[in-house]
Write a protein that binds this DNA or RNA. Structure first.
Lengths: 227, 227
DNA sequence: CCAAAAGTGTTAGACTTACACCCATGG
DNA sequence: CCATGGGTGTAAGTCTAACACTTTTGG
């Protein structure tokens, strides 16, 4: 039951890759970051950031993801979490393959430090993507929408410090519905997920009353009610 | 960037397997089904049901899972859902490997039709398992506990038809807390997840008033509040 | 002092919890 | 006709959505 080196046998090892659905918020719309494929198949076509697992350099699939984000987008320390694995004989023309799909979130500002050549597409309609990348993007979008209403996950679309109005806008964009300001604040406060940064405030673009700055108190928090 | 046949290269393909955390309810306690390993490493030790992905016979990883359940436990048409993928250089002594982990649920009765030699262990304390199987069981248990409070998932631990008292017992075992009978029934009714089977009832073991039999109306339903 | 956005308070109504109660059955 | 578990009703208390209101700022 060890792997063989011949081809076309039942004991051939499948291809193993990772694919990252890197998302951000652009003008209130959830968007996916795509990169033109460097190699065949589908060379030149915009696709998810992905790559082969390298058994010598990558300790595990999380390490592969970090490497891919670094190599293809020049990004480090992005928030990532595993989505699920897509597999099968038909998803890749090169043969039976499995791709461990990840969700990654970052604030728009950070994309400016990223590699050139990246493309931003609406997560709801990213166009026709190669492989099963449309299904992967769909699953990522659904997961963020669902989990977003029950966790501090959407905060990962914000910079390290942010105001409550900013945070509310992000939640509204992710969940896709308007939230009552008063209720939103009450719930966030109850959860104790945020800590104010004393004395620090920020004005919005149209300069009005400055808002208190906050940061996340805990890395990620799950609630047991919707926001 | 194609796979090579030589060993120890960065482009070697990793091992790809599936592991199934098959769970049932035994005397009110969530339990995992283990099987003694047929091959080395850890030959003879109880471990999760698992096996290599076979690129010729298995259309995708779901098919591998169905095959593994059929071959190792003589079970067909068991409810399964993907958990997540565990990967890395160190989890298997044979080298870099990825295992797509699945949760599978079935009622205790069905285990009687299963293969001999299977072992049932408490999900909370399955003993010392090989590979990272303790971590996988832990993740499966957590997922079932969390998702259980928000979905009809625990109903997959019941036979196709069941009574409301039976269902309530299952939820109490999975979530780990007592539920108010009246509230439980109201919530289940609101969700419309069950349909009564007209005229059909079942007596409990200690023969008293017979209870109405129900079946699931939809395959799986997610709620937006806890039960 | 006005406009606009940040932030707080209040109240009607919805929802739940906790418990009491009624019902059906076998012995 | 009683014991037991299935099944239903309800009142007190809690929670929340919705909206009105106050505060802070720049011009």
């Amino acid at each position: 039951m060890t792997a063989r080196t011949s081809s076309d046998g039942d004991f051939d090892r499948p291809i193993l890759t990772v694919d990252v659905v890197l998302m951000t918020l652009l003008e209130g719309h959830l968007s996916v970051v795509l990169a033109p494929r460097a190699i065949d198949p589908f060379k030149g076509k915009p696709a998810l950031l992905g790559g082969y697992v390298r058994v010598n350099s990558d300790a595990d699939a999380d390490a592969t993801v970090a490497r891919v984000l670094s190599e293809k987008a020049k990004l480090k320390e992005v928030y990532v979490e595993q989505l699920r694995t897509f597999s099968g004989r038909k998803r890749d023309p090169r043969g039976w393959s499995a791709s461990i799909a990840y969700i990654a979130l970052l604030p728009l500002e950070r994309l400016e430090q990223a590699a050139a050549g990246l493309v931003l597409k609406p997560a709801d309609n990213p166009g026709n993507l190669p492989f099963d990348h449309n299904a992967i993007v769909g699953a990522a979008r659904d997961r963020l929408r669902t989990k977003g209403a029950y966790s501090t996950l959407p905060a990962r679309l914000l910079p390290p410090t942010f105001t409550l109005p900013e945070m509310q806008q992000v939640y509204e964009a992710v969940i896709g519905e308007r939230l009552d300001q008063s209720s939103f604040r009450r719930k966030i406060a109850e959860l104790g997920a945020l800590e104010p940064i004393p004395g620090e405030t920020r004005r919005s673009v149209t300069v009005r009353r400055p808002a208190q700055l906050y940061r996340l108190a805990a890395p990620i928090t799950l609630f047991d009610k919707r926001l």
